[in-house]
Amino acid sequence: MQRAPSSWVIDPDDPRAPPQELWDHMTPDERQRVLDALPSEFEVSEASPPEGDFHFNPKAAAKETLGGYFQRIGRRVYVACELPVYYPADRMFAPDLIAVLDVEVKERNVWSVSAEGKGVDLALEVLWSGSSKKDLEDNVTRYASLGIPEYFVFDRRRRRLRGFRLAAGNARYQPIVPQEGRLASAVLGLDLGLEGDRLRFFHGLAPLPETHELLARLGAMVGDLETRIDETEQRLDEERRRLDEERRRLDEERRRLDEERRRADEERRRADEAEQRLAEALAELARLKRERG
């Protein structure tokens, strides 16, 4: 890790980005050194506890689902899991999932609000075990104070989904009221809902397909295509056999016609010879009659 500029010291136990006023006065090289010095990985601690599948899988599925959806529709939305987020002079935090609209979609080590020029648009936390105070109380206050427009909490164990949104001119979150069991995200332009203990995203009435569902669909499409290819090849083979049989029949017919033509030619030749012999005989007979007369 590179050292930050002497004008800003990064505490490894509480890493923070510089205040905006200090950032604005830094040179591009100084800013880059700050970004290089901000840690993106941490020792296992209360800030980054180990997790099991019940906590990891929902956020990983959400990242893949949203990332794939926005890529397919050509919308630039950056989606990341557990990425360290640095607001100016504020404590680092790393939500289970963040989404930022209209930015370059690329790999990052950290999200620095000063460097990127904008803050997080949506945060999502997955709650599985432990105290819910951090996600349902502390984060509600903190994320609202940072100006994050929307915040969702998926309590997988209790199968509950909560959403919060900043109203215009309000520094406190207002709960998002469910509509037919779903929460609308103005940021994503999608609805969030639950199917059993799974978090799903919906566009209209249709759920966004998850990766395994897309792979299953692709596998089914490939299977159907292979079946159609096999059926087509079978029809082509049958057509080839039919054409080969037709070709053999035509060849036999051609040989039969050639044989009949040969026999006809032979008969014609014989008839010509017989006619010639008859003409010769008649001529001889006429000659003999002339000699006797």
Rank of each mutant, 00 (worst) to 15 (best):
M1E: 12
R3D: 05
P5C: 03
P12N: 10
D14R: 13
A17T: 10
E21S: 15
H25A: 08
P28F: 03
L35H: 02
D36N: 03
A37L: 05
L38V: 08
D53F: 10
N57C: 01
A62F: 02
A62E: 03
K63G: 01
G67W: 07
G67T: 10
I73V: 11
R76W: 02
R76D: 11
P84I: 02
V85Y: 05
V85H: 05
P95Q: 12
K106N: 04
K106V: 11
S114N: 14
V120F: 12
D121R: 09
A123I: 10
L127G: 00
L127A: 10
G130A: 05
G130L: 01
K133E: 14
D135Y: 04
E137M: 02
V140K: 03
S145A: 15
S145Q: 15
I148H: 09
Y151R: 11
F154W: 07
A167R: 14
A171F: 01
A171S: 09
V177K: 10
A184F: 05
A184V: 05
G196R: 00
G204D: 10
P209I: 02
E213S: 04
L214K: 07
G223F: 09
D224N: 13
D230L: 05
T232P: 00
D237W: 02
R241E: 14
D244I: 08
D251V: 05
R255F: 12
R256M: 02
D258M: 02
D258R: 03
R262A: 13
Q276K: 13
L282H: 14
E284I: 02
E284T: 06
E291Y: 12
